[in-house]
Nucleic acid binder design. Structure first.
Lengths: 323, 323
DNA sequence: GTGACGAATGGGAGCGCTCCCACGACGAGC
DNA sequence: GCTCGTCGTGGGAGCGCTCCCATTCGTCAC
């Protein structure tokens, strides 16, 4: 029994006789044989694993339903292709050594490709990976203008539709609780909102503005900031549902009723929207589909195919009770 | 320049002259050399990576703060040892092929060891991994009695202290909203609670009992079930904070005031405890420390050292407003 | 019966690295 | 001046697999 035949059986090649196949399988059982992934990877130059890197604190990764949906979409598609998804956490707070370890893991051909989620502006990772020849796909554009493979939601259009809805329902004193401005999603949602405000002849400096980091806590702070700075708005767009939840709390504490006194729109259309009172009007983004598409595009890159540089998926407003 | 010298430089061996070292480093830069992890792993029989497997739906993984804390503890310790942590999701709903892919990934020496979290009774993974010779550490005991390396919190003591507290504050009509009974944590918390009830001369069939799966939704259901079945309890122990939050909502809707009419104790001491009104009394378990210890023990197993079969970490009651 | 062709099989080569042994150079001790 | 250690270095061997080529065998057409 040659090694060639055994290898063929284990890899499902059709050019093996029935008797040889069963003999190999029997031997595998008897010897409790486990193939060695390293040796296989060494010659095939493939590991059949893909890393998803989330550059975010553990709290946010595990707090945001966003990641759950993205992982589901990614995992499904990868599973269909027989690849294993592994999650690598690269928390910004981590020490130098840990970051180094993670970097080596990603570049040293442990994985066939890398998916990057939740990128912040100065993140060196996309640059580094591309320069090392590791196929990479970003979810959400990195800040740099270098050509990259990116899958993103239409944050601009989403921000725009949120504010358009507020305006269309008679709100005139607007406030935007924007997300982190070192992320494209944060910038785009804000830009879209301001666009729509301008279109509605709402002068830019008449729009109250405060910033957060997508977390509920930051939404509370931003809302409080806006209330402290001037007359209360009658329409608020928060860059994430969590921020909207924080804002809702602060509005209520300030004696303002939603939606009677203030219309409130969030972003993400996450499950929490249905748990607030009133239920939260929010911009839906197809996160699972984005994840799936990211995987799809990465698979194509790994196979060496040409892929579109940037794919943008549509968002849409889901109207509920809060605006 | 021999391969041996280059290898020595890259691995930080002291037996290299300064000139040779800098020559190698220069060459590495010029050639954009990236070491091949597979080749290295093939000869060293080490990958310097460890997998954390969470057998749970994406929603729960990303919904429960428990996992965030565990991952933090694990990641820290592994980082200190220069190992990379990768998260592998094995959702029960996944198809056969995906489960197979994940299994191969774990057994085929892609990783040096495996950490198992949130184990359910019939999970074949611990068995399989041990039989394949993969060092494994479980967080929370699996149901089977086979000798295994386990790190766990004192769920029994925790459940006991929760009910003791209810009793000590004058509650007599008790209800337990138990967790999943196919997990040791679920069984142990319930057993501890019933122990304490018995010690307080509270007959077992006088304790109202309902089951959930640690989720908020299941807490709501379980609480509603208890209220429907008989006279309302004046002391409720929920097996998780999320379940307690669900119960709190149902109690309120039923017109029962917490803590005036009903004392409520949760389990986990997670951040949500501080966001409820009143704040939630809860059993604290040192999750990050458990994670760290799991990593520590796994590292020892990988090194071939003897390790304790089971380590149990203490829990403690944190009294807040709800009981 | 002979030739030709395809299918199944065995095994050499080599993937890129680390381990380890052997070798040369150099300084110290007698 | 010779020997003996020590330190740095070069390179053979081999990790366990897949790829591919050569070989064998069986089958069919003529």
């Amino acid at each position: 029994m040659g090694r060639g035949t055994a290898s063929r059986v284990l890899n499902g090649s059709p050019h093996v006789s029935l008797s040889a196949r069963s003999a190999v399988l029997a031997a595998v059982r008897d010897l409790a044989y486990v193939p060695n992934a390293a040796a296989r990877a060494l010659v095939r130059r493939r590991t059949d694993a893909v890393a998803l890197v989330v550059t975010e604190s553990d709290e946010r990764i595990f707090g945001e339903p966003y990641f759950a949906a993205a992982v589901r979409g990614i995992g499904r598609r990868l599973g269909e292709a027989g690849l294993q998804l592994v999650l690598v956490m690269a928390r910004p707070g981590g020490d130098e050594g840990a970051a180094q370890t993670a970097q080596s893991f990603l570049t040293d051909q442990h994985v066939d490709g890398v998916l990057l989620l939740s990128l912040h502006a100065e993140d060196p990772l996309p640059e580094l990976l591309e320069s090392r020849g590791v196929p990479t796909v970003c979810g959400g554009s990195p800040a740099t203008t270098r050509p990259r493979t990116v899958v993103d939601a239409d944050n601009l259009g989403g921000g725009r539709s949120a504010v358009q809805h507020l305006v269309a329902t008679g709100r005139r004193r607007l406030a935007v609780l924007a997300g982190p401005q070192d992320m494209s999603s944060g910038r785009d949602r804000l830009a879209g909102a301001l666009d729509a405000a301008a279109e509605a002849r709402c002068p830019r400096d008449a729009v109250a503005l405060a910033y957060g980091d997508y977390s509920e806590e930051s939404g509370r702070r931003a809302m409080a900031e806006v209330l402290a700075a001037g007359p209360p708005p009658d329409g608020v767009f928060a860059a994430s549902d969590l921020m909207a939840v924080g804002a809702l709390r602060v509005l209520r504490e300030a004696g303002l009723r939603v939606p009677h006194d203030v219309g409130l729109v969030g972003f993400d259309d996450s499950p929490v929207c249905r748990h607030t009172d009133p239920e939260l009007t929010s911009v839906h983004q197809p996160v699972a589909r984005m994840g799936r598409l990211m995987a799809e595009v990465l698979l194509a890159r790994i196979a060496g195919d040409d892929v579109p540089t940037e794919t943008v998926l549509p968002t849409r407003l889901v109207v509920r009770g809060s605006a």
